[in-house]
Design a protein around this nucleic acid. Sequence first.
DNA 1: ACACTAACCTGCAAGC
DNA 2: TGCTTGCAGGTTAGTG
Length: 268
Amino acid sequence: MPELPEVEITKNGLEMLLSKKTITKVQIFNPNLRWKVDQSIISKLDNKTIDSFSRRGKYILFNFDKGHLMIHLGMSGKINVVDINQPLEKHDHFLLHFDNKVMRFNDPRRFGSIFYLDRLSHELIDKLGVEPLEDSFDKNYLFENSRNKTQNVKAFIMDSKIVVGVGNIYACESLYKAGINPKTIANKISKQRYINLTNNIREVLRKAIKAGGTTLQDFTKVDGKPGYFSQELAVYGRENEKCYNCNGKIKRIIQNQRSTFYCPKCQK
DNA sequence: ACACTAACCTGCAAGC
DNA sequence: TGCTTGCAGGTTAGTG
């Protein structure tokens, strides 16, 4: 589930609760995630103090004096921080214990991943595109990078080598706000429309972060509570419902094996 | 180099 | 009440 806002919210929650805390015990219950979790991670993390947390794309980074823990939530992952002695829940795969708290990585579908890095470099993050909430995602970026792209614009903005963090929900929402048909070929869109799309991507992501993210099924903040952005979704999950702008019917189509929701009247 | 598909998993809801 | 089918916030490896 988690796209950039949900990952950012998780990272911020961890920062609040676990920054400067020392890991007292590491437990792996099921190492079979997207990639098998290396058992050596246990000794590498034990007794380490977490300096800070950061985020790159949809990866959460736990930064130590030396080294990093890198966690991706996949499709259904979440991280909760609970009091010690709370009973385990189904799909709790990875635990970090602290003095009086336990961090639990829970992921029913196991598309998430966990790696220990000696330095801040890994094939999964080294080639990522720009951060959509940073200055490098400037008004010309999408236009300039789309000139040789013959794929549809939705696939283009979801390509993490171009810009990170825009997943299926926020891609649909941003394109709706920008009035762009998701089927449009990326290199056919004008500079002005890309400037508009850029602004809408940033705004949608910022608003979602403010609302605590989008909870559909699995996602919760580290305190276990859901996010409320699902109440603000204009098109995602609203097939056959009325467009808030024109009262026309929201349509669902499949693009690149993913559902796309859009308003054919408002998005040309 | 680019673009698209299949695959990794579990759970839930809808339809029969 | 099953059983089957389709669908789900991601992303890589493989194919053409």
